[in-house]
């Protein structure tokens, strides 16, 4: 008897895995269905994928999403990197600083999104990418900050001292020792921030203007209009991109170890 394994945990776990994966499988399955009504399976086809590739609205929305996620990822990672370096040593007020930086993680997004909408209307900023990029940067900061901070915390402080002892000035120490050692944390932070922005729906939903629709906003309005095989196809592609990102980072982590 495996003392560690408690009764039924295995059965429940397998059930949970089925619960987690079956809906997604069904979604993927129907994306290859040639029949528009989606109820009946007629035959396998890539028609819907072909259709979404040539759909200009989807192309524009994808482009907007990528521009936004890149800007938000880069912006929040840079800000978070500086903040992580500044919070490396304990000081009075550190807890308050971290609470503020991490606030977007716990605040309900719908509240922050409508509040930001009111701010932008009050100060006269037009909705669109100029409104979305700063808002995305703000809520992506904790996603970039936490992995960078964790990496910095795990770093042996003697390494920086060793570099200075070996005649590297502060700038060279940062470039040759601190930065390379933090790099995995920075990359993890950027990936998290990028994916968070790419997946974001609510903030973009309230702040996007005409012509700046992102992919999640497009998908939401499409779902509202009804179930179509096109949505299945876009969803499948987004799924594959997400899974590829997670699996890649998992494998990279394995190799590094």
């Amino acid at each position: 008897m495996n003392l560690r394994r408690l009764p039924f945990t295995r059965e429940i776990s397998l059930g949970v895995l089925v619960y987690l994966y079956v809906p997604v499988m069904v979604l993927i399955f129907y994306s290859f269905n040639a029949n528009r009504t989606a109820t009946v399976w007629s035959e396998a086809s890539l028609d819907w994928y072909r259709k979404i590739l040539v759909n200009p609205s989807i192309r524009d929305a994808t482009w907007n999403s990528l521009v936004l996620a890149t800007a938000a990822g880069l912006g929040s990672t840079l800000l978070a990197l500086a903040a992580a370096l500044g919070t490396k040593n304990r000081f009075r007020g550190l807890a308050v600083v971290e609470a503020i930086l991490n606030a977007p993680l716990i605040l309900p997004e719908v509240v922050v999104a409508v509040a930001t909408l009111m701010l932008f209307v009050a100060i006269g900023i037009d909705m669109g990418l100029t409104a979305m990029i700063p808002a995305h940067i703000a809520f992506c900061i904790p996603f970039a900050y936490l992995p960078i901070r964790a990496r910095l915390e795990g770093m042996n402080p003697s390494l920086e001292e060793a570099a200075q002892d070996l005649y590297a000035n502060r700038f060279v120490t940062f470039r040759r020792v601190t930065l390379p050692l933090m790099w995995p944390g920075i990359m993890a932070g950027f990936t998290l921030a990028f994916v968070t922005s790419l997946d974001d729906f609510l903030t973009s939903f309230f702040l996007s203007g005409p012509g700046s629709t992102t992919l999640p906003v497009y998908i939401f309005s499409a779902i509202r209009a009804g179930i179509t095989p096109e949505i299945n196809a876009i969803s499948t592609i987004m799924l594959i991109v997400s899974v590829a990102l997670v699996v890649t980072s998992f494998l990279l982590g394995k190799i590094r170890r």
């Binding site: 060793a162 200075q164 002892d165 070996l166 590297a168 502060r170 050692l181």
Partner: peptide, 28 residues
């Protein structure tokens, strides 16, 4: 500052740069 002093240190846990090879550490 330490980088202007003509002394070098052997640290308690060596503090070898993990991202550099042995030769790169010594050449630093």
């Amino acid at each position: 500052p330490p980088f202007r002093r003509p002394v070098n240190t052997v640290f308690q846990n060596y503090a070898l740069f993990p991202h550099l090879s042995v030769a790169q550490n010594v050449a630093f």
